[in-house]
Amino acid sequence: MTTTQVYTPEIELDHVSMRYQTEKSEVLALEEVTVDIRKGEFVSLLGPSGCGKTTLLRIMADLIQPTNGEIKIAGGTAKEARLAQKYGIVFQSPVLYDWRKIKKNILLPLEMMGVSKEEREKRVDSLLGLVGLSDFKEKYPWQLSGGMQQRVAIARALAIEPEILLMDEPFSALDEFSRERLNEELLSIWSKVNNTVVFVTHSIPEAIFLSDRVFVLSPHPGRLSAVVEIPLPRPRTKELRNSKEFYDLISVIRDCFEGV
């Protein structure tokens, strides 16, 4: 090994497989997936439903355990990473607690970690500012739109300043306009925090717009079929969506699915 490593690996999955036992048969959700994600990288797991992209994310989050394979997250096992709060997670739905005001929802993970009240109060304003919801501190979740609720969920995930941000189709329930706007906002938030992001999506443009690399997964069984580098410059703005490079990349990724 003479080559110098130019990056630190943050997430390494080595031949990870996942089998589910259903009543009738055994389902192979993931087959031998090997993935390497660098520190500070924004990657997307892209694929149609049934390709196991969410399963893969949940394995990284230690919410489920794979049948086979090795996982290394931030230098330790997935469980160690979860126990040490190395990641923040955003689900498909905002999962805000109805009885907590926005402020208290965002501070929940800090409460769980035993951060003092003064320290929590200090952090809440910058977190609210980060996602642009400073005026909604004292509101309840239902008083906010779906997009705003998802921003609260992002702020909550970032509250602990995690090394890794795991996002499971966070904008898929939103309309196209809100989704594009939130993509831009997510990038601007990320430019300030600069952690490693794993973003699950089934939208090709979304994956391209956000990511440094796109991991293309194909279904039945879920397999990693391609890894596409996105060499588009940052910071990325909405004009980028109309550029030729952007369209070319869409075709490249479409072709990845054609072969399947």
Binding site: A61, L63, Q85, Y87, I89, F91, V95, Y97, W99, M112
Partner: peptide
């Protein structure tokens, strides 16, 4: 909700903390 419980799990919350912060308020 299962996802609300999963969120607690991602925080490595102890069972009694899950009761105190999630299950009891949700039961009100």
């Amino acid at each position: 909700e299962p996802s609300a419980v999963e969120l607690m799990y991602s925080y490595a919350a102890k069972p009694w903390v899950i009761y105190w912060k999630l299950r009891l308020p949700a039961a009100l």
